[in-house]
């Protein structure tokens, strides 16, 4: 992992913050742990959300979130249009529904990740949700609720192209969780030209009967 910033990144005060961030914990754990505590104290909801957001506009309100908080959901509502791009429906209501459904599947997936990786993700999401670190580390000025798709894309590009492995890792975590939950979902299979399991097999296999 590189332990220096490239010249173009090392000039402004924001980068200085990033520099000290990296010095204090390249592994990130200590620093991120602090953020988790601070975020909790400063009133960010870290308990799972029960009902909310884009998610709020959904007709189907039965899903109970197990891991994502209100803040995490706003984060994904901001990021998903940038992550999924033209794969999302254009029609605003359909788009909202798709985003909401994807966030629910992200939550269900993370539940199965188990405690250790949940802890890592909690640190990442808290870092992105907590105002000070959102501004200094992600360099996203507005709160996620007010972030445009262009701003979200710029953030993703910064973390993708960064020479700092920790940010590359964050980029991969956010995009991988989202892409897998989206493209793996049956209703989106057509977007990757995948016809699904061969129909002839589905017709004759016993596990597809009496469902």
């Amino acid at each position: 992992m590189p332990n220096h910033l490239s010249p173009s990144e090392g000039l402004d005060s924001v980068s200085l913050n990033r520099r000290s961030f990296l010095r204090t914990g390249l592994g990130g754990a200590l620093f991120l742990g602090t953020v988790s505590v601070t975020a909790g104290l400063s009133g960010c909801a870290t308990a799972p959300a029960d009902r909310l957001g884009a998610v709020e506009t959904r007709m189907d309100a039965r899903y109970q979130f197990q891991f994502l908080t209100t803040g995490d959901i706003e984060l994904f509502e901001a990021l998903l249009p940038a992550i999924l791009g033209s794969a999302l429906p254009e029609q605003p209501n359909a788009k909202r529904m798709t985003v909401a459904g994807t966030i629910e599947r992200i939550d269900a997936g993370i539940h199965k990740f188990g405690p250790a990786n949940q802890k890592e993700l909690r640190q990442l999401f808290d870092l992105l949700n907590f105002g000070l670190t959102r501004v200094t580390i992600a360099r996203v000025w507005p709160s996620w609720r007010n972030v445009t798709t262009e701003q979200a894309d710029a953030f993703l590009e910064r973390w993708r192209s960064s020479s700092i492995g920790l940010f590359n890792n964050g980029y991969m975590a956010l995009t991988k969780i989202s892409n897998v939950a989206f493209y793996g979902y049956q209703e989106n299979w057509d977007l990757s030209g995948y016809p699904g399991p061969p129909e002839w097999a589905v017709q004759v296999l016993p596990q597809f009967r009496n469902v």
Partner: peptide, 21 residues
Amino acid sequence: HPAMSAGVVPGHGDTQAKNLA
């Protein structure tokens, strides 16, 4: 398969949508 590919091929946005299509 779609989820495996979406997890293996890195990327986001319109480019990713086009690649996976």
